[in-house]
Nucleic acid binder design. Structure first.
Length: 433
RNA sequence: GGCGAGUUACCCAAGCGGCCAAAGGGAUCUGACUGUAAAUCAGACGGCGUAGCCUUCGUGAGUUCGAACCUCGCACUCGCCA
């Protein structure tokens, strides 16, 4: 849950003239409305800004964390954040460039709204004059009738403009097409901005650059409906230098919810960051100062094998999301399991604690190793497990498993445990009963 | 509503009666080399008790000794026309 100690330690880097300069340096601004005006606005008296999160899953993921940290940096600069969770927009779904979404049941969306609200509010201060305010767009869209919607909002939208939005045109040009439901999404999001502008005098919306079309729907609507100029910032889509998608491990998203991605797995994800990406990750995902990040950049250049930047990054982000105790546990587990020493020399209780951090299973003394690979989730089928053994990619307590018929009998360590490994770094724990 | 095109494994995409568990690419996994990195090279990549068997090519029926490939119905998608 919320860790006030961590929030209170965060600050913006005072070596920058203003917060705008800092977020630009951190690479958080990919597109925006008038930059000069925004810089001035953000350097001036507190404004109210918002960022929305749609409940498309039971948890936020690393992509969303970029948004949350931008919100937090603006809050640290004195501005007032509105954390919006899309109880209504989540029922519709924003158009993805590839294909139509499957509608999520309404009660599921409502459940997810609760989870996301809790997650977002953890990262933003609830103290002081600019404490975060959580809002849900279902509150103002649910009472709106279809007729009112069309008369009061729809009139401001030109279909030609709507068709030109990237997300929409991509879909129209694909063979998936687009439903009227998803086509209408940008109106709903624009409506949010208008509502928040009217209620809170909200002047800025932030979001991913893939949402740029939706962000400008909002600024356009506010201009047309109220005659006011409001702003938007689009953050870059974070990518890996090798072209693969950021925020995925073995094809799975990295979630902020520890039940979906364990703190250990979360920490490992960051430790494995490519040299070519690690400095940019530090800029985006940590509150370390420019000076400190530049120091780490030097270390990557001169002593890359020490992985100092990766370790720092992993510590910073994991403690931010999961707290210091869980991070320490993840680090201790990693040190024990990736250490140079013999596993048999480890203190049994340290080893057991480490294995508890991993995917693990409890089994009988003569269990087959291929079955354990499946039970621990290291492989998804017995066939894949056999293949992995055949390819020489399975290790039991750091010793290569050579036979597909091998069992763990006689191979357990003190305390009746065993460390199962697939490949170089995918580990699981086995507890023998 | 009419006409035309399409629906293949995680994604893209070949196949157009037997040689198809299905080419190729991407993603992913493993090995070598390493720094729990990248790049490179090699192998794997539906399931299973793996020289064999089982379940797949939108879906349901059919033709055939035999169908992802042919016929008919249905669903969905795209385009043009109304």
């Amino acid at each position: 849950m919320s860790d006030p100690a961590i929030l209170s330690q965060q600050s913006n880097d005072s070596s920058f003239d203003d917060v705008w300069e800092e977020i630009v340096w951190r690479g958080l601004v990919h597109v925006s409305t008038d930059a000069a005006e925004l810089k001035e606005l953000l350097a001036g008296p507190p404004i109210t800004y918002y960022c929305g999160f749609d409940p498309t899953a039971p948890s936020l993921h690393l992509g969303n964390l970029v948004q949350i940290l931008l919100m937090r940096r603006l809050q640290l600069a004195g501005h007032h954040p509105l954390g919006l969770v899309g109880g209504s927009t989540g029922l519709i779904g924003d158009p993805r460039p590839t294909a139509e979404r499957t509608l999520t049941p309404a009660d599921t969306v409502a459940e997810w709204v609760g989870y996301l609200q809790a997650q977002v509010s953890r990262f933003l201060s609830a103290e002081g004059d600019n404490a975060v305010t959580m809002v849900n767009n279902l509150d103002w869209t649910a009472p709106l009738s279809a007729i009112d919607f069309l008369r009061e909002i729809g009139k401001y939208f030109r279909v030609g403009t709507m068709l030109k939005k990237d997300a929409v045109s991509a879909r129209l040009n694909s063979d998936a097409g687009i439903s009227y439901t998803e086509f209408s999404y940008q109106i709903l999001q624009g409506l949010d901005y208008l509502e928040l502008h009217r209620t809170y005098n909200c002047m800025l919306q932030t979001g991913g650059s893939d949402q740029w079309g939706n962000l400008t729907s909002g600024t356009d609507l506010v201009r047309r409906a109220e005659g006011d100029t409001v702003h938007a910032i689009g953050t870059p889509l974070i990518t890996n230098s090798d072209g693969t998608k950021f925020g995925k491990s073995e094809g799975n998203a990295i979630w902020l919810d520890p039940k979906l991605t364990s703190p250990y797995a979360f920490y490992q994800f960051w430790v494995n960051t490519d040299d070519a990406d690690v400095i940019f990750r530090l800029q985006v995902f940590t509150f370390l100062s420019r000076v400190e990040i530049e120091r780490l950049a030097d270390l990557v250049a001169t002593e890359p094998f020490r992985r100092e930047a990766q370790r720092t990054l992993a510590y910073e982000v994991t403690s931010l999301v999961h707290g210091v105790p869980a991070t320490d546990a993840a680090i201790h587990a990693a040190e024990a399991l990736f250490g140079q020493g013999d596993l048999a020399d480890l203190d049994p209780s340290t080893l057991e604690a480490a294995l508890r951090e991993l995917p693990n299973t409890t089994t009988t003394p003569n269990a087959a190793i291929i079955q354990l690979l499946v039970d621990t989730g290291l492989t998804t089928s017995l066939g894949e497990a056999r293949r992995a053994v055949k390819q020489g990619g399975v290790y039991l307590n750091n010793a290569k498993v050579t036979s597909e018929d091998a069992t763990i009998e006689g191979s357990t360590l003190a305390g009746g445990v065993a460390v199962l490994r697939r490949g170089k770094k995918t580990l699981a724990g086995v507890f023998v009963q």
